[in-house]
């Protein structure tokens, strides 16, 4: 293949909702984000790996990581660079606050258009903080390109097409699409490779402009020598997005109410694991025809 493939990976920094402790909720019922570690959304890592595998076979492919979030989400771009991505952009602006999936997909589609021509977009099927699986298909629609969801493996990439195996509830389906196409990747796809020591050395000082503002002067000198250490930030103005489609005003869904989960406790019978107690329980279940 002679053509330079252009690949975008959509990745999100999420609070690790899988390991929520007792202090995850504040007394007022809101989420205490401060105590939850921020991680690379797991299925976005699968998506990054799928992109890297395309690049393995097409070394002149270029992978751009695009993430949307607050300043600290620059960490996602560094993680991408450490694993083999070529560059990254942080889409960040206060005007994004309160965006639901529709507003988010609009913002992402504006940023993708700003980045120019592309062949493939990979993203995780869903993020663990919402589990909606909506942003990928919504962004594809806004970009006017087809989507392939639930992708598990890339079978073939040619100059102008990709063949992908999808993982469905009851089996698999192989589909072929011509570029450009947006692909969402499931957690059953290959795990992402580890950081590459060479790339870690190269990019460990990569910073966004906001991060650099707080950096020492010798740091700025370093960046001038090595321009690849600058992670570009994109604002609403940079991607020419329309404010009314962003944030709360651009979000059709509203949260009407949030309730803490309160179980209405039943009066449970508590048993130990002593032989007699378990035998008694099994006898009771047999007697009342629950089992047997």
């Amino acid at each position: 293949m002679t053509k330079k493939l252009k690949i975008i990976v959509l990745a999100k920094q999420v609070p690790d909702t899988r390991n929520v402790g007792k202090d995850a909720m504040k007394a007022d019922g809101t989420v205490n984000r401060a105590v939850l570690p921020a991680i690379f959304n797991p299925e976005d890592l699968n998506a990054l790996e799928m992109a890297l595998r395309v690049k393995d076979k097409n070394p002149n492919a270029e992978i751009t990581v695009l993430t949307m979030g607050p300043g600290r989400a620059a960490e996602i771009i560094r993680e991408g660079l450490y694993r083999g991505a070529d560059r990254g952009f942080l889409l960040t602006d206060r005007k994004f606050a309160g965006s639901d999936t529709l507003a988010t997909s609009y913002a992402i589609s504006c940023a993708v258009k700003k980045l120019g021509e592309f062949d493939l977009i990979f993203g995780g099927r869903q993020a663990i903080d919402g589990d909606t699986a909506q942003v990928g298909p919504q962004a594809a629609e806004k970009l006017g390109i087809p989507q392939i969801t639930y992708a598990e493996e890339t079978l073939e990439v040619t100059n102008n097409s990709i063949t992908v195996k999808r993982r469905l509830e009851r089996g698999t389906e192989t589909v072929k699409a011509t570029f450009p196409v947006l692909i969402t990747v499931t957690g059953s796809a290959a795990d992402c490779r580890a950081r590459n020591a060479k790339f870690v050395m190269k990019y460990k000082h990569a910073r966004t402009i906001s991060e650099l503002a707080d950096a020492a002067e010798d740091y700025i000198a370093l960046k001038t020598k090595r321009p690849y250490l600058q992670i570009d930030e994109l604002s609403v103005a940079d991607v020419q997005a329309d404010d009314t489609f962003l944030g709360l005003s651009g979000s059709p869904t509203k949260v009407k109410a949030i309730e803490n989960v309160v179980f209405i406790a039943k009066d449970a019978k508590v048993l130990s694991n002593a032989n007699e107690e378990i035998e008694e329980l099994m006898k009771e279940l047999i007697a009342n025809h629950t089992i047997g």
Partner: peptide
């Protein structure tokens, strides 16, 4: 909320610019 429903619903919601709640 199947692989079909979760594939088509967000696409259609985006085109119609309406809200969609998952699961």
């Amino acid at each position: 909320a199947t692989s079909v429903g979760r594939d088509i619903a967000p696409r259609v919601a985006s085109a119609l610019r309406c809200g969609l709640t998952a699961d």
